[in-house]
Design a protein around this nucleic acid. Structure first.
Lengths: 235, 235
DNA sequence: CCAAGTCGTGACGATTTCGTCACAGGAGAT
DNA sequence: ATCTCCTGTGACGAAATCGTCACGACTTGG
């Protein structure tokens, strides 16, 4: 059952939306301001967010930007509620494709229609399990990697390895954990298999910025790309 | 709330299906044989019909034909239940695009998935018989493919395969899913049938731009043609 | 500086997966 | 009935991918 986060400072409106969502069979979360919404979104990873743009304290628009800047919430589609003629123009500019907005006052039926449409687009087509780390975009369902929009062919094993590494960018993954999660090895095994695949991964990634760090005696660490746009040498 | 008519002579199976439908929030009607089903369908105009093909008295297949011959029931999508290897071949011929079928034994989850998909297709889009992907135009009703206006002859199997592939352009369809949706295979089957038809499809499409991508170990992916013609974008 | 441990690298064979082909059975058309 | 087209299947080779090994380079600690 999809979970939807409803963000509005007015309790009446929240209640109205939540009621309609329940009637449609959706679970819901509530937040009264942008900060709470952002924290809840990171923690609970809802399938969709309904976000009022007019709120005190923290503006809805800046909350939207925060959501788009965090890797954990980037993929979550957002429906924005806005008053007619207010921020409409600005919104249309920053839409990220997966998002939508609706002008107040709105009919609940209209809102529910958009919720269903948006969920259909994201849940069904599997675009929801796309992981983004810096310039990297890991498409799980597609077994495809894009860096700055450029597709990179990875084998399934390489992809799985990269997937595990990117679980925790900047943090070391032990050899044992990598072997466990990618190959299913349960024992501590002395093997060069991991090294070989790390090498192959590095080969395919190096032209897009060296990414995988060796931590001697421990394991490997995936680093976010430091300098995008630095592509002038090859040796 | 969509209403679904369940047609099966075995009460146990009806109960199982109805239970699952209720859990999903659907209203349901029941019929134990084809005649009753036909009358009920005309009278109540359900949004979808789940029809077992193996029934005493009146065969499911002839019931299906009756449903298609009557103007009041013609537009109602039908999901047919069939035993593996029995009537599969005959079904493939009369598939009218809006319909689906599933091979017994099936999982309730799988059935519910198809119910949702079929309802989504018909309720939302008002069952469009023509699908357009880039320069491709798939005419479900006439089982015809046009690329840039040029007609391409496809067999029914090829057409169905292409139809499933184009459900999600740019996204991989797993072999299992393709086998399931085109041939009704429920198990993971080691067969070269899929490959063969992919090849035949590729042969017919390649002169109009290579389209079908192999994702080793996963499945196939339909790619939109890079169209030399211009594309207009608007909101 | 030496020894031991660890890692990177290239090559190789084994295995898996896919593409292609030929062919036989079946359905529909003539 | 005969013909034609479509379809599924197995055989076989091609290609991709994988894991392992040997060996050299490097790091670390004493």
């Amino acid at each position: 059952m999809p979970t939807i986060l409803v963000v509005d400072d007015e309790k009446d409106i929240r209640d109205l939306i939540v009621l309609n969502l329940q009637r449609e069979g959706f679970a819901s979360l509530e937040a009264a301001d942008g900060l709470e919404a952002f924290k809840l979104a990171k923690k609970k990873a809802p399938d969709l967010i309904i976000l009022d743009l007019m709120m005190p304290h923290k503006d809805g628009l800046s909350t939207y930007r925060d959501l788009r800047d965090d890797s954990r919430t980037r993929g979550i589609p957002v429906i924005m509620l806005t008053a007619r003629g207010r921020l409409e123009e600005k919104i249309t500019g920053l839409e990220s494709g997966a998002d939508d907005y609706i002008v107040k006052p709105f009919s609940p039926r209209e809102l529910m229609l958009r919720v269903r449409n948006l969920l259909r687009r994201t849940l069904d087509t599997g675009q929801s399990d796309v992981i983004e780390i810096g310039a990297f975009r890991l498409d799980k369902k597609n077994v495809k990697l894009h860096v700055d929009g450029n597709p990179i062919d990875l084998t399934t094993t390489e992809f799985k390895l990269l997937l595990v590494l990117t679980e925790s960018p900047g943090i070391v993954k032990e050899r044992a954990e990598l072997l466990q999660k990618v190959w299913g090895y349960s024992d501590l095994i002395q093997t060069r298999t991991l090294d070989t695949h790390i090498k192959r991964l590095r080969e395919k990634l190096e032209e897009h910025g060296s990414q995988i760090d060796t931590v001697r005696g421990v394991g490997y660490r995936f680093l976010e790309q430091a300098n995008p746009g630095d592509d002038t040498d090859e040796d």
